[in-house]
């Protein structure tokens, strides 16, 4: 007997894993009594409900057929998330003036229509200038424009 509904199976697996983590960590918290609930009571209850849903979902995946999981778009996934993380790393160290262009350039590689043409570069410069003017100068968000590694 195989998995007939991969979506149900994997969603259920995620619920089960999450439920296990929730309940496992909650062991360190006092459960208390129903009248005086400790910090562990509600989490354990939620974890158990989630585990139940997970079990039903996994169980159902062997019984009822369903649509396959559509292929994952690895390139946009990696570039969009990667550029976001990169922005965070660079912002603290090199500052906004480096982090922003990196975020924009790396993320835009995710689209197949991106071209290194004049429009793109104009948009890049415009966006960076806009952010520094509006967010740092205007709204006073405390982001280093030039980071500590560059002597900012």
């Amino acid at each position: 007997m195989g998995i007939r509904n991969p979506r149900d199976f994997w969603a259920g697996a995620i619920y089960l894993a999450l439920a296990a983590a929730v309940i496992w960590i909650a062991r360190d918290y006092q459960t208390g009594s129903t009248a005086r609930m400790g910090p562990g009571y509600f989490p354990t209850a939620l974890g158990s409900i989630l585990a139940l849903f997970g079990a039903v979902s996994v169980g159902r995946s062997f019984l009822k057929p369903g649509a396959p999981i559509e292929p994952i778009a690895w390139k946009p996934l990696a570039l969009v998330l990667g550029s976001t993380v990169l922005f965070g790393v660079l912002l603290d160290r090199l500052g906004l003036l480096v982090a922003l262009p990196c975020l924009i350039v790396v993320s835009s590689l995710a689209s197949r229509y991106t071209r290194p043409d004049l429009t793109s570069f104009a948009a890049l410069f415009g966006l960076v200038a806009f952010c520094i003017l509006v967010f740092v100068r205007g709204l006073g968000v405390p982001m280093p424009v030039i980071g500590p590694w560059l002597g900012g």
């Binding site: 969009v80 976001t84 922005f87 924009i104 835009s108 689209s111 429009t119 952010c131 967010f135 405390p142």
Partner: peptide
């Protein structure tokens, strides 16, 4: 869209940062 989405990401990133800096 290929010019748009990097801008959305910039606003998301800066917006989220500014929540608690």
């Amino acid at each position: 869209y290929h010019l748009l989405f990097p801008a959305i990401m910039v606003f998301c990133a800066i917006g989220v940062f500014s929540l608690s800096n």
